[in-house]
Design a protein around this nucleic acid. Sequence first.
DNA 1: TCGCGAAGTGAGAATAGTTCTCACTTAGGA
DNA 2: TCCTAAGTGAGAACTATTCTCACTTCGCGA
Lengths: 149, 149
Amino acid sequence: MPHPDATHGDCANTTTLYGRARVSAQRAAIAEVVPLMRGAFTAEDLHRAVAAHTPGIGLATIYRAIAAMQEAGALASVGERDGSALLAACARNDHHHHLVCTGCGRVVGIECPIDEATLNAAEREGHLVTSHQIVLYGLCSRCRQREGA
Amino acid sequence: MPHPDATHGDCANTTTLYGRARVSAQRAAIAEVVPLMRGAFTAEDLHRAVAAHTPGIGLATIYRAIAAMQEAGALASVGERDGSALLAACARNDHHHHLVCTGCGRVVGIECPIDEATLNAAEREGHLVTSHQIVLYGLCSRCRQREGA
DNA sequence: TCGCGAAGTGAGAATAGTTCTCACTTAGGA
DNA sequence: TCCTAAGTGAGAACTATTCTCACTTCGCGA
């Protein structure tokens, strides 16, 4: 049951997040919360966070919104924690990957670290690479500074 | 209940596959089947294949062996299919990654496609990369030839 | 050869993340 | 105002994986 007084539809942000999918009040609420999530989060984390703003929102709605956002490239899966998928919001729309900070859990978007030439090495072996999935693990700049201090 | 007449323990192959873990008859049977698996496979696929040689082997045993082999680096997770984890046998022990062929499902071990210099770019932004996980998707040499033909 | 403790096993119950179903509501175009 | 497609909440269903339990086996020292 979409909340009657929530904003929806014409929000520029949400159209980016959901692609061409219809944007209801619930999805708009989710779209507002996602960029505020710190680091990688699970579907349940997101449900809790959204429910704080929009009480009564169903878990199924969360999963449906996640699927729509993943399809639109606004959300990425960056591994798993305790058996549930870890998600991260994508602030950028271009081709990029993620660095998951093992210190604070924050997820940072980074340039694609695959060198074209190196990628061609696979081609020299006869393979044709059409897509790839990369997750880097390490320390973000903040945690690194904190460790150094 | 380990099968009384199965070989175990002193198989050079299995010690590589399981690291320092104890190698029972069941695990030896699994170790024999894993290299024969074509392409990526699920735990259930492996269970079926092993059960053909060793009837009655439990699914829990399969999962335990998978965990041991992953720890030993003999088995890698290369994504998922229909909600279950996709696994691939690692023929090599050095640092490498996998190309999952979208044509035949075969998994090929490939050199790490991350250029040191490019990886350092993340470092220039202040991040410290300690590990990474890469899966490439595309066509293996065989499928590419078949498509070209 | 025996005894002992650690580790592996099969069966199946338990857990939990995710998906599906259903009746209903809403958006938006004609 | 209708009509249709799509979204919603609730909760059941599904299913991959883990856990528990009683038992067996291995490895090693005496």
